[in-house]
Amino acid sequence: MKEIALYTLDIAQNSITAQAKHLEITLAEEEGRITLTIADDGKGMEPELLARVSDPFTTTRTTRSMGLGLPLLRLAAEQAGGCFAIQSTAGVGTTVEASFQADHIDCPPVGDMAGSITLLLQGAPELELTYVHRAGEAEIGLDTRQLREELGDGISLAEPEVILWVRDYLQEQEALLRENKGMKA
């Protein structure tokens, strides 16, 4: 994967598969580190599965016995001087945290977070999602409850016109955050 945003999209799909209703995605850029946290209230994992989950030969899929999402993220974080942690409780939810050393040569760029967050919603329009992207003191974000307040119950977030608007909105927010910090995309 070329961007932290693509890992975000990939790992958050696990939460949707685990029937999460709420998802919190936080990307924090501070003190030379980039930390991605994805917390869900999905069905969680038993300790036995949790222990094996960053092994590439572990999956919940029944078609083939391999899953690569978490091992790839773990590898990316550890290669970039960061670390990877996963906590999970069956019936409660799962939290994945990966950090990267921002100035490490192998640290992937943050990339198109607006694109990832909106496509996540397009695929799971019922999800309650809060997204926060922090860079030093500055912060932007999105809360699907606010979107639904404006949209009402009758219109799905997956409607192309709606989701494209949300993407443009978030892109603008991300650009403001970068300007604020003088960061590169």
């Binding site: 994967m1 693509l6 999209l9 990939d10 799909q13 899953g67 690569l68 999402g69 790839l72 198109d112 694109g115 990832s116 496509l119 397009q122 695929g123 192309p160 989701i163 494209l164 993407r167």
Partner: peptide
């Protein structure tokens, strides 16, 4: 849109379909 699709570039493809439609 699994790991394989995302890594290969499915995100801009999905975006392009939404835009065209």
């Amino acid at each position: 849109m699994a790991t394989c699709g995302i890594a290969a570039g499915a995100r801009p493809v999905l975006n392009a379909f939404l835009e065209e439609v």
